[in-house]
Amino acid sequence: MRWLPDAPHPRCDWLGHLAAFSFGPLASGWVKDRARVVLVSLHGADPADLPRDLLESVLDHLPVPDHLRFPSVYTTWQAADATSATACFWAMQSPWLMLPINPTARRYGPIRGVDARPLEARFLSLSDGRAYVIPRPAPAVSDHICVGSSDDWLVTADATSMLHLLNALTGAQVQLPSVTTLPFIDASSDAEGRVVSYGLRVGNNLVIRLVLSECGQVMSVWFGAGNKQKIA
């Protein structure tokens, strides 16, 4: 859009130009926000009512824990967070170290005799030098072993070597297909059907790939021994 020399910069176009934007597909909500901001700015500064694109710029500068708290401050901020196109910024922040499960931790889940385990995972943020606790991951990850990570995802293995992906930020967990779906792995089970061991038949040119999108979403799991096959 060409704009007049005495007009405000288009990024912050106020009431005088509402008509020009009203035909835009996204205009209604956007224009309403802008109109509200003008009214607020006429009656006094209120950072709570910053335009959405500026709120998103503020979000970009916040470390992960503060980013997660942001939507619970003010109702309008929930929308800014939900529509933020900057979710990928998390990948650019310095990585967190996952701390070992503390066996003497006092936070235990529902007592199930000797099986009671701490229901929290702890992380050390290098950027602010603090440890953070994730309580209540469900299903509990405390009996899992962390075997790797990529972006937001941790790869964990449970007692039967079933692999799971855990998103440390959202709590999302994805169960990966059993390793026995790979043609070169056989499982031995006991009388009750529980897996007790795995056998590996080593072939030639075997490739396993976990394909992640830019934002760390799991796209697919591939394996191949000559010809590629998608298994998830």
Partner: peptide
């Protein structure tokens, strides 16, 4: 919010 965000972060140190 409390229901939707059970994955609450708290500072320990």
């Amino acid at each position: 919010i409390e229901k939707d965000s059970p994955w609450v972060w708290s500072r320990t140190t």
